[in-house]
């Protein structure tokens, strides 16, 4: 069965979230999924547009949704912050007639409600039957004990992020990791915020939030953290400071790529700040 999605990469997938972009495209290719990048897409505005920009908070992401209309299929969004902004704008376009007309006039496209923003993790955990994924498995992730980390905006607020997993106690990422042969560790910090939006201007606060999460992951018996957001990954990977034993932080698509035996994905592990290769070699998952 062929699947096809509109694709909104977001700004970080070409920079700090480089491994996420490469692994997302590689995994989708391997699973026979087509990603059609939205032509001339723009930044969603992130935290800054809703902090200072007023209407920009919905107007900037709304442009991307209008540009995606002719594609007529769900929009796959790898970044949790982009997903939150596009979902908020989509709701506004559906419910606020004046806003929709204004956006249609500025962008010169019509809104037909045909390109629903969806988190990439939602797509990966909802649209593929387990048997289908299992058929692609080349290397079970035996010995890997990840904690699943969703962060803030993949599931909050539920009225906007939708109900594709439980808001306070999500489980779908754990199930996917089990299917890949890993043994997810249970913890209660899956949806606690890592503070990424302050990482440039208040590194001191962010280091405390990240330190708390990594300690909780250690206490849970985990040997790595899995994320589905480029801001969470960059923040958790880059802000562990001088911890004696820093913990590797993976994108879910990197672990999929590893389990599917995709060399272009495993070749990027050396670009993490906390090098995950010693752990993977110790477990016999990487040569």
């Amino acid at each position: 069965m062929s699947r096809s999605y509109a694709f909104y990469p977001g700004c970080t997938l070409h920079s700090t979230g480089l491994e996420y972009g490469v692994s997302t495209r590689a995994v989708c290719r391997a699973l026979g999924v087509e990603l059609v990048e939205i032509e001339d897409w723009n930044c969603c505005g992130a935290s800054s547009a809703h902090s200072l920009g007023g209407e920009l908070a919905d107007a900037l992401p709304a442009r991307n949704i209008l540009l995606a209309q002719p594609l007529g299929r769900d929009i796959a969004i790898p970044c949790a912050a982009c997903y939150g902004r596009l979902s908020s704008a989509d709701r506004r376009l559906r419910e606020d007639e004046a806003f929709r007309q204004q956006m249609e006039q500025v962008i010169g496209r019509e809104y037909a409600g045909q390109a629903r923003p969806r988190a990439l993790l939602d797509i990966l955990t909802s649209d593929f039957p387990p048997e289908e994924l299992r058929a692609h498995l080349r290397k079970p992730l035996t010995g890997l004990r990840p904690v699943s980390y969703y962060g803030c905006l993949l599931l909050r607020p539920p009225q906007i992020a939708g109900a594709w997993d439980d808001t306070e106690h999500p489980v779908k990422l754990d199930r996917l990791l089990e299917l890949l042969g890993a043994e997810p560790s249970r913890w209660t910090y899956a949806t606690d915020c890592c503070g990424a939006s302050m990482t440039l201007n208040r590194g001191d606060i962010v280091a405390r939030l990240v330190g708390r999460l990594v300690s909780a992951a250690e206490d849970a018996g985990a040997n790595c953290i899995v994320t589905a957001c480029p801001l969470c990954q960059a923040n958790l990977d880059g802000r562990q400071g001088r911890r004696p034993q820093p913990m590797p932080v993976f994108y879910v698509t990197e672990l999929l790529g590893l389990a599917l035996g995709l060399d272009e994905v495993t070749g990027l592990f050396g670009r993490h700040i906390v090098d995950p290769r010693p752990l993977l070699r110790r477990l016999g998952l990487l040569s």
Partner: peptide
């Protein structure tokens, strides 16, 4: 200081 994590509103 609010990071917009949406926990309060949820």
């Amino acid at each position: 200081m609010c990071v917009g994590c949406e926990t309060c509103g949820t």
